[in-house]
């Protein structure tokens, strides 16, 4: 018996050893590179930053995490989370009909076309797209011209006048920033919802109608509940990507930090790595809370 044959036999007879050998490299890689470095980063949130010497010393403190609740820092968190929630909601509302159409009414080449159409925008650099949006939304830009053509510029001005939503122009308003976020993250919402709807057997919808449910009832009682795992997955993308983004808040919208741009500023310009690490913890905690809530609502029961 050749050594190779002997080895095969040993591995076949000991499936656990086989599995362990297969998994040790990727798990080691994942553990060290992903989780290890992330925990290391978070650990630095406990280090002390000296405001005078700008030096980081490994003296453990909770001051950085406490500082998150300073009004100026807490404002950043509230602003970012509000935007992330708004972006996730709007993405879900926009994505659902597209995903529904893709899953239930397209097949073959039409389905492939829709996949490509949804994913193609993701192939282009998103910094370029964000810059393009600053031009579209700028004073005298396409968006403004278009609303004028529709004789809706009065309405636009009224919307821009609403505090917390508007700004002097679209490109410096919260609304403009919101539009860009929704534009950029929409595909991340469409694809998971589409996948969830794809798994929904048509016989369930027929059974619902057969039992006397009108189309709206079928949608509310069967289609929507069974697509919630997809909506949850998509919203985790849109929510966490918005929480961590540092490009869009700098280029579009009114001045003021987001969590992402704050981390960027803290570790770059200021060099306060511990504070940046503390800010990094915020999205992680928020997503964990969000998942716990969604799970409690039973979103994953049908998985």
């Amino acid at each position: 018996m050749t050594p190779l044959r002997t080895l095969s036999n040993v591995l076949y007879q000991r499936p656990n050893l086989y599995l362990a050998l297969l998994l040790v490299t990727p798990l080691g890689w994942f553990g060290a590179i992903y989780l290890g470095s992330l925990l290391n980063l978070l650990w630095q949130g406990f280090y002390t930053f000296d405001d005078f010497t700008m030096a980081v010393t490994p003296t453990l403190t909770l001051a950085n995490f406490a500082a998150l609740f300073n009004p100026s820092n807490f404002d950043i968190i509230v602003r970012t989370v509000t935007m992330a929630v708004a972006v996730s909601l709007a993405s879900a509302v926009l994505a659902f009909p597209i995903a529904y159409y893709m899953a239930r009414y397209t097949r073959g080449k039409t389905k492939a076309f829709f996949y490509i159409a949804v994913m193609m925008p993701m192939w282009a650099s998103y910094i370029v797209k964000t810059y393009a949006w600053t031009l579209l939304l700028a004073k005298g830009g396409v968006a403004q011209w278009f609303t004028q053509q529709l004789a809706l510029d009065g309405l636009l001005q009224a919307i821009l006048g609403i505090p917390g939503v508007g700004g002097s122009t679209l490109s410096t308003s919260h609304l403009g920033r919101f539009l860009v976020f929704v534009y950029i993250w929409l595909p991340f919402m469409i694809l998971p919802i589409q996948a969830a709807l794809e798994r929904l057997p048509p016989s369930l919808l027929q059974a619902s109608a057969d039992l006397g449910a009108k189309p709206l009832q079928t949608f509310m009682q069967v289609t929507l509940p069974l697509s919630i795992p997809g909506i949850a997955a998509g919203s985790i993308f849109t929510f966490s990507l918005t929480l961590g983004d540092f490009i869009v808040p700098q280029l579009v919208g009114p001045p003021g930090y987001f969590i992402g741009s704050m981390v960027y500023a803290q570790q770059g310009a200021i060099g306060n790595m511990p504070m940046a690490a503390a800010f990094t913890l915020v999205p992680i905690v928020l997503i964990a809370l969000y998942l716990a809530v969604v799970k409690r609502m039973g979103a994953f029961d049908a998985l």
């Binding site: 016989s203 059974a207 619902s208 006397g212 009108k214």
Partner: peptide, 30 residues
């Protein structure tokens, strides 16, 4: 949904997100 007939499907088509009682009560609920 306006026909006085009901179907037992080949794959049963039970709603996976509802318990057995809610499945059975579905027609009455709607």
């Amino acid at each position: 949904y306006q026909r006085d007939v009901n179907t037992v499907f080949q794959d049963y088509a039970l709603f996976p997100h509802m318990n057995v009682l809610d499945n059975v009560a579905y027609g009455l609920k709607v």
